[in-house]
Amino acid sequence: MVTIRGATQRAARVAHQETRMEFRVLGCSGGLSRGGHTTAFSLGGHTLIDAGTGVGRLSIEEMQGLQRVFITHAHLDHVAGLAFLADTRFASGAPPLAVHARASVLRTLRKHLFNWQLWPDFMRLGPEAQPTLEPHRIHIGRSIALSEAVVTPLPARHTVPACGYAVETPRATLVYSGDTTACRDFWRALNRLPRLDHLVIEIAYGDEQEALGHAARHYTPAVLGEQLQRLRHRPCIHLMHHKPGRGEHIVAQCKQALAGWDYRHLEGDDRLML
């Protein structure tokens, strides 16, 4: 059983703050296309959740102002922007960027990306003998307190080690699934949250590609519709990660599969206030 440790208590510690935190979509596509960028979200302007090609929406000044990034898993569509973000921050002399991820994800990034072959090792290379990227191991269910929010890694089920994240502020709770398919522990973790206002969750393939969705560990509209019956909350659902060329099929199929739910399909630069 996964326990979310102290999230509610830590959220209460920042309840006196009146400012709201912006959740901005930098990229939410399941692949590259004209105008479409892969997964990356900005949280309050100082934190990223995933670092796909959507990072390219940020200005140099915004990149320099980042303090940390939370990675769900090591697939390229979620970390490609991290390579270029590190390069930009190194060139500008920015302080180390904290990279929060599961231990296996950090190992994959070190071995296969920041290895001096595919890209410089920015986990060691940096200005003034400091690394450009500073790795921090996360644990499922163990919360990380930020100044305006509490971030808690959640279980997920993908083809590689992965997680989602819950973001709790004094005014709202948002959960981002990352890449996943049906996962009993994910829904159990959501049901233990005191509230859930927004659920950002993926649908990569249409129902006609159910076998592919099962093999690749991605949702289809029908499978997500079935799994939502496990949820005791009634959040606004924000759908993302549609594979290029499948969007129209997914939109049409969601009308039936998600009937009765408050949902929308995310687009680049959408913003939510938490």
Rank of each mutant, 00 (worst) to 15 (best):
V175G: 12
L106G: 05
A211R: 15
R264N: 02
V25D: 00
N191C: 08
P170Y: 12
Q209M: 15
Y176R: 08
Q256A: 03
L146A: 07
A103D: 11
A94R: 05
G30S: 09
F90H: 14
H46P: 06
M1S: 12
F186V: 15
P153G: 01
E22F: 09
L274S: 01
P170F: 11
R24L: 09
G31F: 14
T220H: 11
G213Y: 05
V151G: 02
A216V: 12
G30M: 10
A40F: 01
V2Q: 13
L43T: 09
A252G: 04
H75G: 11
L26G: 00
G45L: 03
A166Y: 02
A103M: 07
E210C: 08
T152I: 02
R246S: 11
A156C: 04
A7V: 01
R271K: 00
L85R: 08
L58E: 03
T19Q: 09
R20Y: 00
Q227L: 14
L228R: 06
A101R: 09
H238K: 00
Q229V: 12
G164F: 11
I138P: 14
R34W: 07
G206Q: 07
I71D: 06
G178K: 10
P135G: 03
H46T: 06
G44E: 05
L82M: 11
Y219F: 15
C236T: 15
V223I: 15
V14F: 08
A12I: 07
R10A: 00
L109Q: 07
F90V: 13
L118C: 04
F186S: 12
S29K: 14
G36Y: 15
A40C: 01
H139N: 13
A11F: 03
C163P: 15
A101H: 08
R184A: 02
T181P: 14
S143Y: 06
D197Y: 14
L26H: 02
F84Q: 05
S42L: 09
G54T: 00
G164Y: 10
R271T: 10
H37W: 10
P170R: 11
R232F: 04
L85W: 12
D197E: 14
P120Q: 06
E210P: 15
R184I: 12
T159S: 01
R10E: 00
E128N: 10
L43C: 05
G225D: 13
R142Q: 14
L228V: 13
S104K: 04
L193W: 12
V2S: 14
L272I: 08
Q9T: 11
A40L: 00
P153S: 00
R110K: 03
D179L: 11
G268K: 09
R107G: 02
G36P: 14
R234L: 05
A15L: 07
P221H: 09
C236A: 08
A189N: 08
T181N: 10
R230L: 03
D77S: 11
N191M: 08
Y165P: 06
L224F: 12
F41C: 00
G247R: 04
L118A: 03
T108Y: 10
Q227H: 14
M63D: 07
R124H: 05
A51Q: 09
P161W: 01
Q117W: 03
V105N: 01
A257N: 10
T169P: 10
R110T: 09
G213A: 05
L274A: 01
Q130A: 02
T39Q: 10
D197N: 15
D270T: 03
T108L: 03
G65T: 15
H100E: 12
I60T: 12
A80S: 05
E128Y: 09
P95M: 10
I71T: 13
P96W: 06
Q130N: 01
G56Q: 02
